[in-house]
Design a protein around this nucleic acid. Sequence first.
DNA 1: ATCGGCTCGCGCAA
DNA 2: TGCGCGAAGCCGAT
Length: 466
Amino acid sequence: MGSSPLDRLSDDPRVSVRRAGAPDPDGRVVLYWMQRAQRASDNPALDLAIEVGNALGKAVVAYFGLVSAFPGANLRHYQFLADGLPDVASGLARRRVGFVLRRGTRHDLERVSEEIRPALVVTDENPLREPERWRRQASERQRVPVWSVDADVIVPTAQLEREQYAARTIRPRIHRQLEWFLQASRERAARVRWRSPAGLMSLEAGPHLLDGLPIDRTVPPAPGFRGGSTEGRRRLRRFVAERLAGYADARNHPEIDGTSELSPYLHFGHLGPREVALAVQDADAPLADRQAFLEQLIVRRELAVNFVRYNDRYDELAGCEPWALDTLRRHHRDRRPYLYVPRQLEQAETHDELWNAAERQMVGTGWMHGYVRMYWAKKILEWTRSPEEAFAVAIELNDRYELDGRDPNGYAGIAWAIGGKHDRAWGPERPVFGTVRYMSFGSTSRKFDSRRYIGGQVLNPHFFHV
DNA sequence: ATCGGCTCGCGCAA
DNA sequence: TGCGCGAAGCCGAT
């Protein structure tokens, strides 16, 4: 049995062998199909591709397909993504890795493979159903080995083995493994330099990349966010220097810029979670603040990834627990004093100015504060005709307007708010909610300065990111 | 300001 | 089988 250098590399718990076999000896390169992890450092998938290339004595090339068919994505998301590609290009060059950038309606790993003739293909992971299907189908069609690397979590998702019931069940399992997995990667460069075959097509990462691409352009780019690893790292440094001290309290004050606002960068893979965690862990800030942030970044974020990976109904009410489905069903005919259609919600036309402010923050800036996201989703449950409709409307709005939409965090957050996912029952039993945890305007407003949050929105829709 | 009761079920000790 | 306790809550009593 194997103890060749290659077997040792595929033995890593981050790695799944999706197509087994020996690398094609006639293959010219190791091909890294970059999808989720759109960065050239703190990227275990890229690191592995380089290790394999060096072990085989072959060059390494990364292929990125800018596909217009990504479900639910619009110009806001594509602009942010495209902002990040120049950083990918320059970062890969520093590691002597080639870059092939193409665009089209869908991924075309097959054609790129035919042109480049890889010995082996490496890719990253994304637990959402469509990207997972792309990886599976592409692996079936390859004639060379395909390995995927779980690059965007700290503890590999497979280590948890099954769907976790709550934060309290995943937390000790994650903490036990952090010492092993929370380590900076060794950023090696490829030993063999990539030489592009004559005539191989690749686009320039630049401002015109989106021109003519058939995407949904009805949502404008987010005015306060520029994508990319460089910008993400700048924001990380600023957060650690200016906001980490005091984070444990400030994060629950939506009227203050107290959070990291890094979720878009993590969503597009412009930053890796290890780099963020290590920067915070080693920071000169009170322990309680560092712990509060790491709880969000690691325990809560990876619980969300676990949910999407192991529950194929992650975007419907039916994916929630029986106790919650029962209590919501018993209350589905309750009278609802306020009822809104999706259009009214989208336009922030409710009687509740706190809710409207949260909605406007999301639509206008592409990012809603985490604390009001809970309130926002729970009120949709209260103001629509059924929990199923509430779930669908919340996901549609979240995925359309949030820069970090279409992300496990969003699905888990909405399932928590509407379906009690990862939560517990709370009495007393109430209309519509049953024993799903309730939130009220009055109580929520007493915890932070909601007037200031609302006012900031009214005076300047970009208040939060100026 | 703080406290208790509301309510459910996992995971572990036994 | 019993028991402790848990993502951010709410409300009324003290």
